[in-house]
Amino acid sequence: MREELPALVHVVDDDADLGAAIVRLLIRNGYQAQSFLSPETMLDANARQECQCVVTDVMMGEVDGFALAEALRIQNPAVAIIFMTAWPTTANAVDAVRRYGGLDYLEKPIDEARLLAAIAEGSAWSRRRGAALRRIEPLTAREREVLELLAAGMSNKQVAASLNLSTRTVEDHRATVMAKTGASGVADLVALFADAK
């Protein structure tokens, strides 16, 4: 079995010392890590090599942590984002998680254990989501619809009725989905869809 490379984590903070300290911490904990002083330079680097996890400050220069998250999602939908801030507010914490898909919202001074736990969880999630996205990438739009309904627990007949197709056609689509994604059964399909969502 091919040994998996350590997850790549990008750290974005306008405080160079803090960025470097976090990077060293992550390297000591078995990650690949790189720090950036601005969101722009980080986006450039991510375009060259996609990372699994980004730890970013919220308040920076012209592009803040939330704007960076929006740009990053377009570039890499499978990246896990962790926000950190010295100005925590309830409204920002809610936005960070619900609107910008952040995995955690950390208050400075950073709680080291919580940061490492969040990065571990984020890297694992990112790998799963990346793999799932790659598996469903070859599917056509119709096949994705079929996959979604099957993952929701519908039978072939119910899917056919829902999409105005014949049961036979749905069975064909299902076979193609299984073949393209390499899924071993319906349970695998449900898990795959959950990871890719």
Binding site: D15, L18, A21, R24, L25, A86, K108, P109, I110, E112
Partner: peptide, 18 residues
């Protein structure tokens, strides 16, 4: 002041543990 202190304090916390 809290904001300014919390930045270097984060660095100090990580490095002192290390």
């Amino acid at each position: 002041v809290i904001h300014e202190i919390s930045q270097p304090l984060s660095t100090l916390a990580i490095e002192s543990r290390h």
